[in-house]
Structures are given as structure tokens and as C-alpha cells.
Amino acid sequence: MTKKSKNSTLKEVLDIILYENPSTQDEIAEKLGITRRYVTKLLQPMVKKGIVRRAYILDLKKYDDFSEMFEEEKTSREHAGSYLIKDLLKNMSEHVCKQLKTSFEALLTHKKDQANDALKMDFITNNMLEKVRSSVDTAIAINPYSEFSKTVVFGEIAYDLERIGDHSGIIANFTMQESYEVDTEMMDYLKEMYKTSKKMVSWSMDAFLNEKLDLKEEVMSCEDKLHQLQKKALNCIATQMAETPFEDKDRSTYYLSLSRVVKAFERIGDISIEIIDTAGEFYHNIPRTTTPERFRRREQKIEKARREE
């Protein structure tokens, strides 16, 4: 095997580590159609030099110096770093949306094995967060005084996505722990809350990754719908709880857990608002408000009531 082809294969291995979050060398080998032994041979010097850290995170500062051997056309280090981290965030966003979808489908069908799969996906979400944080630290170390220091915002977005993954976990845990299935009326509310919150995540991330700030109006409209649905869903739960005998503690616990599922969708919507507000600051220096979203809504309602008087 020539040096060039060997380097090409190594580059493919490192790209998989960067973008696809493999857990084992067997997984890398399978994706590339090569042997695990050859993957080990390629990665061994990378591990010794600290370029690759187990379980499979790249030290991007060392990788940046090392990558000249791939003889690719190089852009500025700042531009390349920004592009790379945005790509990591794009993959993380897609994964978190799949995690949310898997969690809700498990709730919809009351399948505990699918709920367990959704919970396992959270490990990958956490690993993706660490990769973004590692990349951000590297980017800031390269040039902490330039405009590229805004890269720290990428870490905030990754943390927001990780929080969405946590709220998806609440939905999956409900299916794992509760023996009662959700009735039709309540499920209709949850279906709409899921569709609305998922749109908000997708649109807010599109706004951040691709500077589509005009999507904010759509996201805010979805937020209004989500809170209307939340109010109806909680009223439904309150009505059903009132009809439950006091001594039926299992059923009462079920309703409390169900209310946490409703709250999880609401929090996913709030985080989406935070992401799109961050996009406005990142691209156009529009300051983000320090007032939590729930208090902003309360102030808006008070102001609306005053105007109506």
C-alpha cells in the first residue's frame, strides 16, 4: 500500500471519528470495509501522539498541525475551525431530533424497548457535547483575541441541544416506568406538542447554522401554539386526577409523571427560543435578553391586559 493511499484511509478513519461518533474500532472498520487490525495499526501512532483520545475524540489543535500530510487545500484555520464545529452541531442537532422522535414514538406505542433505545441515545448526545466543547477550546486557543472567539457560543448551542436530549429522556422514562397507557384525549394533545416542539428545534437550529433569522417569527408562532396546548393538556390531567379516588396512589403518581412529560415539551420549546435568540446575537449582535422565557411571557400577558383596558 502506498503512502498516499494509507494517508487517504487514515483521513477517512479520522473523519468518521469527527462526524459519526463511533464507539469501537470494529464500528470504524465496518463503515470503511477494512479490518479492525488495520484500523488499530492506523490509529496507534495517533493515540501515542495524543491526536486521538479514547473513546474516540480528536484533539483538534494537534490534528490541525498533523493534517498537512493529507495534502488538502487549506483555508484559514479560523474558517476551517468554524466550519468544522458547525458541522458537529448539525450532526448533533439531527441526532437529538431522532432521540426526541424515538422517545415520543415509544410513548405513542407504549413500547418499553424503544424507550430504552431512546435513553441509550443520550450517551451519544453527551459524547457529541464533549466533542463540541473540545473543538471550541481548541479554536479559542488558536486565536483567543479575534472575532473567532465568538466560537464560545457554539458550546452554548451544544449545551442547549444536550438539554433537549435530557427532556427527551423524561419522555422515554415515562414509558419505561409507568404501566398505564395514555388515553386518546391526552395523547392528541401530546401529539401536537411533539410536532410543534420538533419544528421549533429544527427551525431554531437552521436559523443558527445557516443565518436564517427570518425563521424567528415561525418559531415564536409555534411557541404560542405550544403553550396553548400545554394549558389544555394540564387542564385535562387536572380533570382526570379529580376523578381518581384518593387512595389510588399509583394513578395519582401516573398523572404527576404525565404532567412532567407535558412540561418537557414546553421546556424544549423554551430552549428553541434561546437558540434562535443566540443566533440573532451571533450574526447581528442583537443582545439576548437575560429575562427567562416564562417571565417574558408573563410580562407580555400583563402588558396585553393593560392595553385592552
Rank of each mutant, 00 (worst) to 15 (best):
M1N: 08
T2N: 14
T2K: 09
S5V: 10
N7V: 04
I17Q: 02
Q25L: 08
E30G: 10
L32Y: 00
Q44C: 04
K49P: 05
A80W: 10
I85K: 13
I85S: 11
K90G: 09
S93I: 03
T102I: 08
A106Y: 00
L107A: 07
T109I: 13
H110W: 12
K112V: 13
D117F: 03
K120I: 09
D122R: 05
I124M: 08
T125E: 04
K131D: 11
K131Y: 07
D137P: 00
T138D: 12
A139C: 07
I142Y: 11
N143V: 06
P144H: 01
E147D: 14
K150P: 09
Y159W: 05
L161F: 10
R163G: 05
I164Y: 03
G169S: 06
I170C: 06
I171C: 09
Q177H: 13
V182I: 14
E192G: 05
T196N: 05
K198E: 08
K199T: 05
S202A: 15
M205R: 04
M205V: 04
D214F: 10
V219Y: 00
L226G: 00
I237V: 15
E243R: 07
E243G: 00
T244K: 01
D250L: 13
D250V: 10
S252N: 11
T253M: 11
L256K: 10
V261W: 01
A264W: 02
I268L: 05
D270V: 03
E274G: 12
D277V: 00
D277E: 10
T278K: 12
G280L: 09
F282L: 02
F282T: 01
I286H: 07
F295Y: 14
F295I: 11
K304S: 15
R306P: 00
E308Y: 09
E309H: 12
